[in-house]
Amino acid sequence: MSIQHFRVALIPFFAAFCLPVFAHPETLVKVKDAEDQLGARVGYIELDLNSGKILESFRPEERFPMMSTFKVLLCGAVLSRVDAGQEQLGRRIHYSQNDLVEYSPVTEKHLTDGMTVRELCSAAITMSDNTAANLLLTTIGGPKELTAFLHNMGDHVTRLDRWEPELNEAIPNDERDTTMPAAMATTLRKLLTGELLTLASRQQLIDWMEADKVAGPLLRSALPAGWFIADKSGAGERGSRGIIAALGPDGKPSRIVVIYTTGSQATMDERNRQIAEIGASLIKHW
């Protein structure tokens, strides 16, 4: 067993022997301040990774656009098919120029040779490549099948209805392509620590998230040296922004954090800054 596999296998073990965790309302004060600064709703939840206990939450059962955070769930569904012998990570998928959609920095470079399922998941999570996500959605049967996968996990809230990039439209009061912070946090925890996926697939999923290259201005910008984070960000229309993450000190994750916002007129930089400040408060009061 590799060191990384050992780390993920012992996530519940280490967490069980940690000192009790206590909620700190100071972080919620910052979440509410972010709402004021952005002029928009902000949803927040913080779960203990081992027990699933909610440590703090704000608007945990209000719907927010998922945006690209759905790509972690998508690759979880792909990995479940791999575990069941219905898919192979090494299978190569070929596609054409007509398949390319807006923001496809990886797939646009491989029109000639195609990409493997493993490479597509890596591109979808680490670079948020939209064509990679659409190609992977095709392998599982489309958005409705991802929703069905989530329902089978016990998540009857999260739903995907459309493809990239239309799913980022974020129309107010439109339930399409949305989740709730509580539902997303619980589902992410199941994917990373539950028995739904094999140990190898859980490790692969967290490795992809740990290698995320496009979430630097968010929670990662607030992390002290030595902290662990595996995350996936999302951005959408109407001032929408979000991030889902597993993080913790001492090089291992111990909490799940989900943050979503929508309806702001603020710039992307300002949305990023507010999420980073929430992260800084979380870490300060850990």
Score class of each variant (00 low, 15 high):
residue 25 P to N: 04
residue 26 E to N: 13
residue 26 E to I: 13
residue 28 L to I: 11
residue 30 K to R: 15
residue 30 K to M: 15
residue 30 K to H: 15
residue 31 V to S: 13
residue 31 V to P: 13
residue 32 K to L: 06
residue 33 D to H: 08
residue 33 D to Y: 14
residue 33 D to I: 14
residue 36 D to N: 12
residue 37 Q to P: 13
residue 37 Q to V: 09
residue 38 L to R: 03
residue 41 R to L: 11
residue 41 R to Y: 09
residue 43 G to A: 11
residue 43 G to Q: 06
residue 44 Y to S: 03
residue 46 E to Q: 10
residue 47 L to K: 01
residue 47 L to W: 00
residue 49 L to T: 02
residue 50 N to S: 09
residue 50 N to G: 11
residue 50 N to Y: 09
residue 50 N to V: 11
residue 51 S to F: 01
residue 51 S to R: 03
residue 52 G to Y: 09
residue 53 K to I: 12
residue 53 K to Q: 10
residue 54 I to E: 06
residue 55 L to Q: 04
residue 55 L to F: 11
residue 55 L to W: 10
residue 56 E to D: 12
residue 57 S to M: 03
residue 59 R to E: 06
residue 59 R to W: 06
residue 60 P to T: 06
residue 61 E to P: 01
residue 62 E to D: 09
residue 62 E to R: 06
residue 62 E to K: 08
residue 65 P to Y: 04
residue 68 S to L: 07
residue 70 F to A: 15
residue 70 F to L: 08
residue 71 K to T: 14
residue 71 K to E: 13
residue 71 K to H: 15
residue 71 K to C: 00
residue 75 C to S: 01
residue 75 C to Q: 00
residue 75 C to F: 01
residue 76 G to W: 03
residue 77 A to T: 02
residue 78 V to W: 06
residue 79 L to E: 06
residue 80 S to E: 04
residue 82 V to S: 02
residue 83 D to A: 08
residue 84 A to S: 06
residue 85 G to L: 03
residue 85 G to Y: 11
residue 85 G to A: 07
residue 85 G to H: 14
residue 86 Q to W: 11
residue 87 E to Y: 10
residue 88 Q to L: 06
residue 88 Q to T: 09
residue 89 L to S: 04
residue 91 R to D: 07
residue 93 I to N: 08
residue 93 I to L: 04
residue 94 H to E: 14
residue 95 Y to S: 12
residue 95 Y to N: 15
residue 96 S to V: 04
residue 97 Q to K: 04
residue 97 Q to A: 04
residue 97 Q to C: 00
residue 97 Q to Y: 04
residue 98 N to C: 15
residue 99 D to K: 06
residue 100 L to D: 04
residue 101 V to K: 14
residue 101 V to T: 15
residue 102 E to N: 02
residue 102 E to Y: 00
residue 102 E to F: 00
residue 104 S to L: 04
residue 104 S to R: 04
residue 105 P to M: 04
residue 107 T to A: 11
residue 107 T to L: 05
residue 107 T to P: 07
residue 108 E to G: 10
residue 109 K to G: 06
residue 111 L to A: 09
residue 113 D to Q: 08
residue 113 D to I: 04
residue 114 G to D: 13
residue 114 G to Q: 11
residue 116 T to L: 02
residue 116 T to Q: 04
residue 116 T to R: 03
residue 118 R to A: 12
residue 118 R to W: 07
residue 118 R to P: 05
residue 119 E to N: 01
residue 122 S to Y: 08
residue 123 A to G: 04
residue 123 A to T: 04
residue 123 A to P: 02
residue 125 I to D: 09
residue 127 M to A: 14
residue 127 M to G: 12
residue 127 M to R: 13
residue 128 S to T: 01
residue 128 S to H: 13
residue 128 S to L: 02
residue 128 S to G: 15
residue 129 D to A: 03
residue 129 D to L: 01
residue 132 A to P: 02
residue 132 A to G: 05
residue 132 A to R: 02
residue 133 A to Y: 06
residue 135 L to E: 07
residue 137 L to T: 04
residue 140 I to N: 09
residue 140 I to G: 02
residue 141 G to A: 03
residue 142 G to F: 01
residue 143 P to A: 04
residue 144 K to W: 02
residue 147 T to Y: 02
residue 147 T to K: 01
residue 148 A to C: 06
residue 150 L to G: 02
residue 150 L to Q: 09
residue 150 L to I: 13
residue 151 H to M: 06
residue 151 H to P: 02
residue 151 H to F: 03
residue 152 N to S: 10
residue 153 M to A: 04
residue 153 M to L: 09
residue 153 M to H: 07
residue 153 M to I: 07
residue 154 G to K: 02
residue 154 G to Y: 04
residue 155 D to I: 15
residue 155 D to Q: 03
residue 155 D to F: 11
residue 156 H to D: 07
residue 156 H to K: 10
residue 157 V to A: 13
residue 157 V to S: 13
residue 159 R to W: 09
residue 159 R to P: 12
residue 160 L to R: 08
residue 160 L to Y: 12
residue 164 E to R: 00
residue 165 P to F: 07
residue 165 P to S: 01
residue 165 P to W: 01
residue 167 L to R: 01
residue 167 L to S: 02
residue 168 N to D: 14
residue 169 E to Q: 08
residue 170 A to R: 00
residue 172 P to R: 01
residue 172 P to F: 04
residue 173 N to K: 11
residue 173 N to D: 12
residue 174 D to M: 09
residue 174 D to P: 02
residue 175 E to G: 03
residue 178 T to L: 12
residue 179 T to D: 15
residue 180 M to Q: 13
residue 180 M to N: 11
residue 181 P to F: 00
residue 184 M to K: 12
residue 184 M to P: 06
residue 186 T to A: 08
residue 187 T to D: 11
residue 189 R to E: 14
residue 190 K to W: 14
residue 191 L to R: 12
residue 192 L to W: 14
residue 192 L to H: 14
residue 193 T to Y: 05
residue 193 T to C: 07
residue 194 G to Y: 08
residue 195 E to N: 00
residue 196 L to F: 11
residue 196 L to Y: 07
residue 196 L to N: 12
residue 197 L to S: 09
residue 197 L to F: 01
residue 199 L to G: 09
residue 200 A to C: 07
residue 200 A to T: 05
residue 201 S to I: 00
residue 201 S to C: 00
residue 203 Q to S: 01
residue 206 I to W: 09
residue 208 W to K: 02
residue 208 W to H: 05
residue 209 M to G: 08
residue 209 M to Y: 05
residue 211 A to M: 07
residue 212 D to V: 12
residue 213 K to Y: 14
residue 214 V to L: 15
residue 215 A to F: 12
residue 217 P to F: 09
residue 221 S to N: 15
residue 221 S to Y: 15
residue 221 S to A: 14
residue 222 A to Q: 15
residue 222 A to L: 15
residue 223 L to G: 02
residue 225 A to V: 06
residue 225 A to T: 07
residue 227 W to L: 05
residue 227 W to K: 09
residue 228 F to I: 12
residue 229 I to Q: 10
residue 229 I to H: 10
residue 230 A to I: 06
residue 231 D to K: 13
residue 231 D to C: 15
residue 231 D to V: 15
residue 232 K to M: 15
residue 233 S to L: 14
residue 233 S to P: 15
residue 233 S to Q: 15
residue 233 S to G: 15
residue 233 S to A: 15
residue 233 S to D: 15
residue 234 G to C: 13
residue 234 G to Q: 08
residue 234 G to Y: 13
residue 235 A to W: 14
residue 236 G to A: 00
residue 237 E to N: 00
residue 238 R to E: 04
residue 239 G to W: 03
residue 240 S to P: 09
residue 241 R to Y: 14
residue 242 G to E: 13
residue 243 I to S: 09
residue 244 I to M: 13
residue 245 A to Q: 08
residue 246 A to F: 08
residue 247 L to V: 08
residue 248 G to S: 05
residue 249 P to T: 05
residue 252 K to M: 13
residue 253 P to T: 13
residue 254 S to P: 08
residue 254 S to G: 09
residue 257 V to L: 15
residue 258 V to Q: 07
residue 261 T to F: 09
residue 261 T to E: 15
residue 262 T to F: 08
residue 263 G to S: 01
residue 264 S to W: 03
residue 265 Q to Y: 09
residue 267 T to D: 05
residue 267 T to C: 09
residue 269 D to E: 08
residue 271 R to D: 14
residue 271 R to Y: 15
residue 272 N to L: 03
residue 272 N to S: 09
residue 277 E to V: 06
residue 279 G to C: 15
residue 279 G to N: 08
residue 284 K to S: 04
residue 285 H to L: 01
residue 285 H to P: 02
residue 285 H to V: 01
residue 286 W to P: 05
